[in-house]
Design a protein around this nucleic acid. Structure first.
Lengths: 220, 220
DNA sequence: GCTCGATTTGACCGTTTGGTCAGGTTTTAC
DNA sequence: GTAAAACCTGACCAAACGGTCAAATCGAGC
């Protein structure tokens, strides 16, 4: 993220840039916070545990972030930076099979690389999205409206079957995020998970295969 | 659930049966607890808030359930009672299209009728399944192993395409539970949700259509 | 080498939380 | 009608939690 302003650092340098110590510590705090908030939600997370995982005292952590809510807002900001990107790449001029396949794979990659981000998102939404409700109703809704129109256009042109685009998008989100959010259950049932290359490859192939065969027009 | 033993009631009647007052109050507590744990997870939930939602004092709630953990165990027990039932009904002798379609619809019904149960399950699993890990590795794994074999047999007989059965089951779970777990996001994007008849019908049709078209053998 | 700002932390604070207990009220059984 | 058990709750407790602060240490700049 961008260099923090003075208010962000608490008492920053006059030229506004963050010191190397600040950058390192903020990064460590945010990484620890992702994990803690992902697992326990905002209310269940403990500042003391975030600090311990970041390798510093609780007071020092609060030197960098003024409050628990400030930490949470920062991790949500980082999350949203990567969360909407895959859907943005869906190209109206592209081939539906290739576009949807690429989208599914990008989402599975997100689950593999940022499982904590996925769980954090799920936690925030299950709590009623108190901190990101306006994002859901704003930029996300605008993006989804745009892409559901893309899917409708493909269907109108006979390139895919006429399925409800919202439910198709929900299915792709649900299925791909499941590998991150329910990793514990998946591991209990299969002994492995999305972070293993073979498992991930099988997931990509099976998920893409079922969804693509499910929406492609016959004879396509 | 069965009538509680003396230890469950704290100081029960000598004949072991629960009084009407006990039954009523325990039910109210569990309903309130489902909602609170679903939203905030075990650590984030507050006994005071469960009590308020149940219409009683915190001390009275603790008269019925000895501790926060006892309440949590009780709601998990109720949850697991209904959670595995749909998958159990998958009939090896049945027609794959009908069996999978029925299963999808049962799972969507579960999401519509017990959204708090779905979110509670998700929360518990995202926390690493500390309280139900043994259930996942035990009865759930046994059930999933049995049903993945059913799906493999269907594929071997050419009745469905040879898809990885684990990923198919994960897809059905993910997609159907999504309507409960991410209801807040779905409402933000569509203005409605799975509890509305039209939306639910569209979800059932679209989800079943895509998955069934995706796994049925061609020409079937 | 010195000064000053940045960084760090243990002690502490006020509030919150899970849980206990004494005592009052209600209900049940005889 | 009475006694005992069940039910209920406000006051209270100890521990935990989010956050503050004074002071010590470290690092950068001159």
């Amino acid at each position: 993220m961008s260099a923090p302003s003075e208010s962000e650092t608490g008492n920053g340098r006059s030229n506004g840039s963050a010191t190397k110590i600040q950058e390192k510590n903020r990064a460590r705090i945010l990484e620890a916070a992702f994990s803690e908030f992902a697992q326990f939600g905002y209310r269940g997370a403990r500042i003391e545990q975030i600090a311990a995982a970041a390798g510093m005292s609780k007071s020092n952590l609060l030197y960098y972030f003024g409050s628990k809510k400030d930490i949470y807002k920062a991790v949500l900001a980082d999350l949203l930076d990567i969360w909407l990107a895959p859907l943005r790449t869906l190209d109206p001029q592209g081939d539906p099979r290739e576009e949807l396949s690429a989208y599914i794979n990008q989402k599975i990659e997100l689950s593999a690389r940022y499982p904590e981000a996925s769980k954090l998102f799920a936690n925030e939404v299950m709590q009623g999205a108190p901190m990101i409700g306006d994002v859901l109703e704003g930029s996300l809704k605008a993006l989804v409206d745009e892409k559901t129109q893309v899917i409708r256009t493909w269907a109108a042109k006979g390139r895919i079957r006429p399925v409800d685009p919202h439910h198709l998008i929900f299915m792709i989100w649900a299925t791909t995020q499941h590998y991150a959010d329910f990793a514990t259950q998946i591991r209990a049932l299969t002994g492995t998970g999305i972070e293993e290359a073979d498992f991930r490859k099988s997931a990509e192939e099976t998920v893409a295969s079922i969804i693509l065969e499910g929406v492609m027009a016959k004879g396509g």
